[in-house]
């Protein structure tokens, strides 16, 4: 990643909010309210814009969620990481599919895996999970569906020591 100094326009706009992370990316921590505005600036208004969408995903930190956007410019190794902490109770962001068309799928994935609501998304269906899946799998408090006939894990395989204690093998 880039070991260059932070560009002047970003340094002016974000002042202390932008730092250079350990892997060389420029990390911008913003609040949930400023998120959409920041992304619109980086992806559309700024010249040259960070028009290459690298990734969008969420992280579960226990008390809070964090939404992370990785942006870059083609032919360069500059990378911007925009992070924003959201409350766990009603996490919600606004869509950026109008800025980067490739945001559609990562946002759908975020919605189904973490339950982060994405307002204004043109197509809020489940992406990877089957329709009607209960629960948000990537949250830390997700309960494994052990009552499902296909997905349940056998006691014998999951905890072999305990099973064998209860059902000892006869010699």
């Amino acid at each position: 990643m880039s070991d260059d100094a932070i560009p002047t326009d970003l340094a002016e706009r974000f002042a202390d909010g932008i730092t250079t992370a350990a892997d060389g990316a420029w990390e911008i921590a913003v609040s949930a309210e400023q998120l959409r505005e920041t992304l619109a600036f980086l992806g559309a208004d700024r010249q040259p814009a960070f028009d290459y969408l690298v990734d969008i995903f969420a992280v579960d930190y226990g008390e809070q969620f964090e939404v992370v956007y990785h942006l870059s410019r083609p032919r360069t190794h500059e990378m911007v990481r925009v992070c924003s902490r959201l409350s766990r109770q009603k996490p919600s962001v606004q869509t950026v599919t109008d800025i980067w068309a490739g945001a559609s799928w990562p946002e759908r994935e975020m919605m189904e895996m973490y339950g982060v609501a994405v307002e204004g998304h043109p197509d809020p269906r489940n992406l990877l999970l089957p329709e009607g899946w209960k629960g948000y799998p990537l949250r830390k408090d997700y309960e494994y569906p052990d009552d499902h006939p296909w997905l349940s894990r056998d006691e014998l395989h999951d905890k072999p020591g305990e099973y064998l204690k209860q059902h000892p093998v006869e010699e």
Binding site: D51, Y52, L53, D55, P74, R75, I99, W100, A101, G102
Partner: peptide, 24 residues
């Protein structure tokens, strides 16, 4: 292609010489 985040041969077929082996 760029706004979708395409990379690799798909992007290089659109005239963008973006190859991380050279860039990074």
């Amino acid at each position: 292609a760029v706004r979708h985040g395409m990379s690799g041969p798909c992007l290089r077929a659109c005239g963008v010489d973006h190859d991380l082996r050279k860039i990074i």
